[in-house]
Structure formats: C-alpha cells, structure tokens
Design a protein around this nucleic acid. Structure first.
Length: 271
DNA sequence: CGCCTACCCTGCTCGC
DNA sequence: TGCGAGCAGGGTAGGC
C-alpha cells in the first residue's frame, strides 16, 4: 500500500523521466478504471506534484483555447512505474522520448485526466486534508477536530484530518503516540502526541524512501527498495515483543484493515 | 450528514 | 506436487 512516503519517493523518481516530455499516446485496458486519458495526448508534462497519495502530472495548456489539465495517478495497493512492460502493465504512457509503464497487479490503482483542480469525481482527493509535512497542517486544528472524532484509526484513514496516512503509517503513528487504534474523542494531550508522531513518522519514512515489505511490492521503477520497514514498531509485527514494554504486539481487524498495536502501551480508555 | 459495511481485484502463502 | 481457501487493503457506493 503505497502511502505518502512511497508516493513521494515515486514522484521524485519519475520527475526526471517525465518532466518536459510530450505524451504522444496513452494505451490501457479496463476503461472504467482509466478515464479520459486521451485528453492528455499531445500535452507536455509541465510539472509533477503530489497530494496525499495521488500523483498529479501537470499538463499545461499550450494556448488560451485549451484548459490546463492534470493526469491523476493513484498507485492503489500494487501500482508503480516501470521502464519496461510486464505482465501487469495496465497503462502505457508513450512519450516523445520513449515509453513509461504503469504496472498494477491487483488493479486497485487509478489513472484519469481531469481539468486542473476539478476533483469532484474523486471525493477523497476533493476533500483531502492538509499535507502532514506542510505549514497547512496545524496542531490546533488537529487537536480540535480529534476531540469529537470517532475511532482514531479510521478517522486518520479517511484522509480528512491529514492526507497521505494509510494502514502502515497509521499503525506506526498510533504506536509512537501510545494511542489505541479504536480510541475515540482524543484529549488535547493525546492529540498533540499523535500530531507530533505523524510528522515524525512521515519525515523519517520519506527520508528512508518509504517502506518495502517482505513481498517486495513497493519498489521504485529502478528496483530500489525503501528502507523504512526496518523501523516499523507495530505494523506486521504481531506476536513480536513491543520495543517499549515487551508485551507481544496484537493484531485485530478494525474498519476492515489489519491493525497492529501494543495492548499494554496503547490501552483503550473509556470516554 | 456521518458512520458503517461490502465490494473491487489478483498474486501470493499456507495447509492438506 | 496440486489446489483451494484465505489474506492483503484504498477508495467508493450504498445503506441506515
């Protein structure tokens, strides 16, 4: 599950491969997942941005008769760019300087072309919360919203209080801030700990190039693996001793997601 | 309107 | 060795 650190690493890696290139043709199957890609044909990539877990390729208008467009890419669970086609190539971006391939074994990824900023067809992107490593992510706002929130992990996964947090980094941030994933209505001190943990975990994970799991799914186009997985304290460590207290890490299912936490350090408090 | 659940999709692991 | 069951899960639709 590429989350903010993996998507940001991807953004940095593909930027030199796509910036300034002209998209000559886009091929794909499964049209219900890859929409309006033809609108990008003939456009030059003028920038590569990221919002939460979405990559946003800027396709500026050539003249006043056209709209600025964006090519959205969501990597889903297994999506990634490759320099060569493979059995799981779903979308091929042909450019004036060679092709780049979007591979996605489990087909949870998305590619779409929209008018710049027009995200109504993508409600999560449309209502995306602030970037966790930006000035827009304010502790005061976060603490206030957390005070009335439901179970904290699903709340984080909604992308509304903050963007880019997925299953791995939710579990890691909650372990770091010693909060139970199902805790509701965070007290100010708890919310401040979580706010700091999200920034700390995301900063370290971006610096490490993200996390590459045991199955090697989350690699960059050049085969490079992330390094943050060795710093996981909770995610995928069920049964192993908590690094703070030695209690075995528990695994439960919460909001349909595998959820890992220390039952001793992260107690559920009645509210 | 907000919360909850089912579903999408397919490669991989595990047990027999 | 072969094979079916179970698992992984972000985002979205739909129900209450």
């Amino acid at each position: 599950m590429p989350e903010l650190p993996e998507v940001e690493t991807t953004r940095r890696k593909i930027e030199p491969l796509l910036l300034g290139r002209t998209l000559t043709r886009i091929e794909h199957d499964a049209p219900h997942k890859y929409t309006d890609t033809h609108r990008a044909e003939g456009r030059t990539v003028t920038g590569i941005g990221r919002r939460g877990k979405y990559l946003l390729l800027q396709l500026a208008a050539a003249d006043a008769t056209e709209d600025d467009l964006e090519l959205l890419v969501h990597l889903g669970m297994t999506g990634g760019f490759r320099l060569e086609a493979g059995p799981h190539t779903r979308v091929t971006l042909h450019t004036d300087q060679g092709a780049i391939y979007f591979n996605d074994a489990r087909r949870f990824g998305k590619v779409a072309v929209v008018r710049k900023g027009e995200y109504v067809a993508f409600p999560t992107l449309h209502q995306m919360g602030p970037e966790p490593l930006s000035e827009a992510f304010k502790e005061g706002d976060f603490v206030k919203a957390a005070a009335s929130a439901g179970a904290v992990k699903p709340w984080l996964l909604s992308q509304k209080p903050v963007s880019g947090v997925g299953n791995i980094y939710a579990d890691e941030s909650l372990w770091t801030s010693r909060l139970h994933p199902a805790q509701t209505r965070l007290k100010p001190a708890e919310a401040r700990r979580l706010y700091a943990a999200i920034r700390e975990v995301m900063t370290a994970a971006v610096a490490a190039g993200g996390s590459t799991l045991g199955d090697g799914t989350y690699r960059q186009h050049d085969g490079e693996a992330g390094a943050f997985q060795v710093h996981h304290h909770a995610y995928a460590r069920a049964g192993e001793p908590c690094e703070r207290c030695g209690t075995p890490i528990a695994k439960i299912v919460l909001a349909q997601r595998g959820t890992h936490f220390c039952p001793n350090c992260q107690p559920l408090k009645p509210r």
